[in-house]
Computed example of a mutant assay.
Amino acid sequence: MTSDVTDTGKFGTGPLSRVSALIYTLLVVELLVLLTVVPGLVALVLLDRSAGNVPLMAACLLPVGPALSAALYALRHRRRDLTELRPAPAFWRGYRLNFGAAMKIWVPWLVILALVGTNLGNFSAAGVPGWWGALLVVLAAGSTLWVANALVITSLFAFRAVDVAKLAAWALGRFPAATLANACLLVVAGGVTLVATEAAVALLASVLTATVLWNSRAMIAEVEQRFTRQ
């Protein structure tokens, strides 16, 4: 039988404890994300999937930005030691600290998404060429990859919104592996939404957020090294 006590005799720092700590943190963060977004999520699930409701769908997603920002903050600052876990206080601290900054990034993205969705929903009636629809899809995907970078940056660093926007766009080309990984994650999330509902994606929020954070570790390290005071 193996023990989770290290050679130094300290409990809670072995491999089993680290895995348990990660699972516990993900579960707590997931519950807190759901708690902060549940009103909008319920309304979103009940809305009819029509082009006219796209702006309302975007409005339902307003609470998601600060919640994801708080989740990123809590996961970034999580403790590996099972005896020192405090994911809930870290989440609420991140929520308070980053609410305004996250909304400055999140709201413009939702506006773009609402405009794209409305145009695509009325695409046949508009009589525009097919390439315009493809361009709109590329715009939606590109802006989503951008907002993922922007949320990571604004959740972990204290930059002005305009600087966050520039850094997030710069990171798309500077870290192509991370951009590709996030694009794959976007495809998975979109597939889950199509097959199931938005609620299914919400139930995976902490896992998806942790994956984005993992994909962004090179970007985080370079931003910290190049653009913050040591």
Results as ranks from 00 to 15, higher is better:
residue 184 C to I: 12
residue 13 T to A: 07
residue 80 R to C: 07
residue 196 A to G: 06
residue 199 A to Q: 08
residue 160 R to G: 15
residue 158 A to I: 07
residue 217 R to C: 15
residue 87 P to M: 04
residue 109 W to D: 06
residue 179 T to G: 10
residue 34 L to W: 09
residue 64 V to W: 15
residue 63 P to M: 11
residue 97 L to C: 12
residue 183 A to L: 12
residue 77 H to D: 13
residue 83 T to Q: 12
residue 24 Y to V: 05
residue 153 I to W: 10
residue 87 P to I: 02
residue 194 L to Q: 08
residue 139 L to M: 08
residue 149 N to Q: 13
residue 14 G to A: 05
residue 55 P to S: 06
residue 58 A to F: 06
residue 229 R to Y: 12
residue 209 T to I: 05
residue 35 L to D: 04
residue 199 A to K: 04
residue 108 P to W: 03
residue 117 G to T: 03
residue 79 R to K: 14
residue 108 P to G: 03
residue 17 S to R: 03
residue 225 Q to N: 14
residue 183 A to S: 14
residue 169 A to S: 15
residue 226 R to A: 11
residue 191 G to V: 00
residue 59 A to Y: 12
residue 80 R to P: 10
residue 76 R to S: 14
residue 130 G to S: 04
residue 35 L to G: 06
residue 96 R to S: 13
residue 125 A to G: 11
residue 143 S to Q: 04
residue 147 V to N: 03
residue 53 N to Y: 03
residue 56 L to F: 15
residue 8 T to R: 14
residue 60 C to N: 07
residue 76 R to E: 15
residue 114 A to I: 02
residue 42 V to L: 13
residue 66 P to Q: 06
residue 63 P to S: 10
residue 100 G to Q: 09
residue 155 S to K: 10
residue 43 A to I: 10
residue 222 E to C: 03
residue 51 A to I: 02
residue 177 A to P: 02
residue 18 R to K: 15
residue 58 A to N: 04
residue 48 D to G: 11
residue 193 T to C: 02
residue 102 A to H: 01
residue 22 L to A: 09
residue 8 T to V: 11
residue 222 E to A: 13
residue 154 T to A: 15
residue 127 G to V: 01
residue 132 W to A: 00
residue 218 A to T: 09
residue 74 A to E: 13
residue 172 L to I: 15
residue 4 D to Q: 06
residue 126 A to H: 04
residue 192 V to Q: 01
residue 99 F to Y: 06
residue 140 A to P: 04
residue 154 T to V: 15
residue 174 R to P: 03
residue 6 T to K: 08
residue 58 A to C: 14
residue 54 V to G: 00
residue 62 L to E: 02
residue 166 K to P: 08
residue 188 V to H: 00
residue 60 C to E: 07
residue 225 Q to K: 15
residue 78 R to M: 09
residue 24 Y to M: 09
residue 133 G to H: 00
residue 29 V to F: 04
residue 196 A to K: 06
residue 205 A to P: 08
residue 149 N to F: 12
residue 221 A to Q: 10
residue 78 R to I: 05
residue 90 A to H: 09
residue 87 P to V: 07
residue 107 V to P: 02
residue 72 L to S: 03
residue 121 G to T: 01
residue 12 G to S: 07
residue 132 W to I: 00
residue 212 V to E: 07
residue 211 T to A: 14
residue 5 V to E: 09
residue 196 A to M: 14
residue 71 A to S: 07
residue 57 M to A: 13
residue 144 T to G: 01
residue 110 L to C: 11
residue 158 A to S: 14
residue 8 T to A: 15
residue 175 F to K: 06
residue 184 C to V: 13
residue 218 A to Q: 11
residue 92 W to I: 05
residue 229 R to H: 10
residue 155 S to A: 13
residue 197 T to G: 01
residue 139 L to T: 02
residue 36 T to F: 10
residue 107 V to A: 12
residue 114 A to D: 01
residue 141 A to M: 01
residue 35 L to Q: 09
residue 127 G to D: 10
residue 74 A to N: 12
residue 68 L to K: 04
residue 97 L to P: 04
residue 101 A to V: 04
residue 10 K to E: 14
residue 73 Y to C: 10
residue 133 G to I: 00
residue 11 F to T: 09
residue 181 A to E: 11
residue 68 L to R: 03
residue 145 L to Y: 03
residue 119 N to R: 00
